[in-house]
């Protein structure tokens, strides 16, 4: 591949190859402050490529590949190359990672303990984590949280936060503009802008923390808290995990332990301020 970069996010070393300069340059800018070890062999390989040679230049469209390829994935225009790179990195981790139980969940940490938030896109888990991560919390990740199979600790995957639509303005108002990536409008996921996590979140990304609270947020509607039983939390987290089945009994044991040890709640909230207040309130109760 013509342009290559190596990026480490949490425990995952990526090798990213691209036929265009732009996506790699944009990634290098977002991940400039991350620790780098160019000699370390990669855990996951990402490729951004043109389906036909001439499509490198003529209406260039970026196909996503690497260790794993999803056959029917549509390409993105080169102007959204950074989004293509982000999606490709997610895909390789989602399909390839086997060292930890991988949850499609955001997480933040305080006092050596973790708040884990799991939900579909649109649940606000990413925005809540980003906003909490600008306050007294350490951002662990907005998309994936890793659970250590033997010990049960949570590990961070603090990739650049993918802010979407309204969340962009909400977060941009509170952070140094130098921490924001380029605004990509009209992508298949709406408007997207990346946020570079705070330096303390990157510096602490290898520090495991004990899970203390599980939230299943739902954006919209009246403020509400529903305690969730172990069984339901278990079911929801198997659905939120991309590698639960592949891990066999180790995954079963880790997940059983997580839902038994950590209180879980479904929460509904009308806006971010209410969501944060709920999270803080439940955190105080869970960790007192």
């Amino acid at each position: 591949m013509k342009y290559v970069s190596r990026i480490a996010v949490g425990p995952v070393q990526f090798r990213i190859g691209s036929e265009w300069r732009e996506p790699v340059a944009a990634l290098d800018r977002l991940y400039a402050a991350y620790p780098r070890d160019d000699a370390r062999p990669a855990d996951a390989t990402v490729r951004l490529f043109a389906a036909r040679p001439w499509r490198r230049w003529l209406r260039p469209s970026v196909h996503i590949g690497g260790d794993f390829v999803v056959p029917d994935a549509l390409p993105l225009p080169l102007s959204m190359g950074l989004l293509a790179a982000e999606m490709a990195m997610n895909l390789q981790v989602a399909l390839g990672w086997r060292r930890h139980l991988l949850l499609h969940a955001s997480a933040v940490a305080r006092d050596g303990r973790a708040l884990i938030m799991s939900g579909q896109s649109g649940s606000g888990k990413s925005t809540l984590a980003a906003l909490l991560g600008e306050g007294a919390w350490r951002l662990m990740g907005d998309e994936f949280t890793l659970i250590d199979l033997a010990g049960g600790d949570a590990l961070a995957f603090p990739r650049a936060v993918s802010l979407k639509n309204q969340a962009i303005a909400e977060v941009a108002a509170r952070v140094d503009p130098a921490r924001l990536g380029p605004l990509m409008t009209g992508t298949p996921k709406g408007d997207i802008r990346h946020l570079i996590p705070r330096a303390d979140a990157i510096a602490a990304m290898h520090q495991p923390v004990r899970p203390a609270l599980l939230l299943f947020p739902r954006f919209g509607g009246e403020t509400a808290i529903e305690p969730m039983g172990e069984g339901e939390a278990f079911v929801r987290l198997t659905e939120a995990s991309t590698n639960y089945v592949a891990l066999g009994e180790a995954g079963f044991a880790a997940l059983t332990r997580l839902v038994r040890e950590v209180p879980a709640f479904g929460i509904s909230y009308p806006d971010s301020a209410a969501g944060i207040a709920l999270a803080e309130q439940l955190w105080a109760e869970a960790t007192q």
Binding site: I64, V70, A73, M87, A94, E239, T242
Partner: peptide, 8 residues
């Protein structure tokens, strides 16, 4: 689910 992350 993984596909869903980006092909929905």
């Amino acid at each position: 689910l993984a596909k869903h992350l980006w092909t929905k």
